[in-house]
Design a protein around this nucleic acid. Structure first.
Lengths: 190, 190
DNA sequence: TATGTTATGAGTCAAGATGTCTCGTAGAAT
DNA sequence: ATTCTACGAGACATCTTGACTCATAACATA
């Protein structure tokens, strides 16, 4: 055998461990992601978990990375419909337990863990960049006249949804989304 | 001695323990709030911490409660100025490390801890109630014509600030605040 | 000041968690 | 069939956790 990682046994264990870690994060929170608990749930030996991830926090980080976070798809025309669609998707995603778990865990651990902070920054940048980019293009096309910098628009669009889902713990309905879209500037009638 | 809790030694230990727990939460996160670490930092015996708080999570909860969270003061007239003032205060507060630490810790632990979830709900309810109440009054007075239910207005006002501070990790400036205030409805010129 | 009270710190102890290592075995490549 | 290697099981020392004891010093009361 040439490469260790191509071994099916290695792959199986790795996946089982990642799944177990993700389940534990979802059910009991990040503190529950320990070598012992992950091993038991994954049905593998404790030593195997240590072999794959010597440190528990890196296993947690990798398990979190397996949860698909809601980023935004490429902008389409008309931009306002694209916004409605993407923000609605984002809201539905944030209402899922695992996505919300990853998001809130990321936000809190980022304050004390450098690796997590980098991931938080990356996530925030992607969202802001894509929104700002789409809005800038829309403005050039005359679809909208923004009342603020593109950066603020991102916070104004995503913030209410994020707050509603993570703090108020309620559904982000279409009223909320449409209002925030209308708030960022003047949309030209079509 | 009649009452145990009136003993100055008891008071001193209790305060030292609470302060130490709060410092640890701020510097190293909620996982660092253990009996042993708190005892060492507080300069008290490990047994003393157990005597005051048999469970570490309750100590953490109580330490978090000592951090003054930004609620909203009683509404004043004109409502729009009150909103600007209160939301700016809230933004300044959320930019403080300890407040942000408590807020994000609350949001994440609430997903797996019932006690924390109750506190999150209480916090969200207070904010939403006060905002909705103030806005309803303002609408009766003819100050504003709301474009949405009062509940949505709360998320629309607080959400962007919360998102900016906790996810984007940047300052919530006046542009962001003013835009969100303008977004919730039509304000009558004065 | 004298005296009884009590919270405390230091220490002990058992139980459990954690990290490391070895070894026989079974699964995989050739 | 043979070699290689990831694996599970378990042993092991170390650290952590939670509960307990006891002498002491800080406290209230007189």
């Amino acid at each position: 055998m040439v490469n260790t990682e191509s071994d099916p046994r290695f792959q199986r264990s790795q996946q089982a461990i990642l799944s177990a870690a993700r389940e534990l994060l979802l059910e009991k929170g990040p503190v529950a992601v320990t070598h012992a608990q992950v091993a038991e749930r994954a049905g593998v030996g404790r030593a195997t978990v240590y072999r794959h991830w010597p440190r528990a926090d890196e296993l947690l980080a990798e398990a979190m990375a397996t949860v698909p976070m809601p980023l935004l798809a490429n902008p389409t025309i008309p931009t306002r419909q694209w916004l409605t669609r993407e923000l609605t998707t984002l809201a539905r995603q944030l209402e899922l337990d695992d996505v919300r778990a990853v998001a809130t865990t990321l936000a809190s651990t980022a304050l004390w863990d450098q690796q997590m902070d980098a991931r938080r920054a990356q996530f925030a940048t992607i969202l802001a960049d894509r929104l700002a980019g789409a809005l800038a293009t829309a403005q050039v096309r005359g679809e909208v006249s923004l009342a603020m910098p593109g950066r603020d628009a991102a916070a104004l669009l995503v913030g209410p949804i994020y707050y509603r889902c993570t703090i108020e713990h309620g559904p982000a309905d279409s009223t909320l989304i449409e209002t925030s879209i209308a708030a960022i500037g003047t949309w030209t009638a079509r």
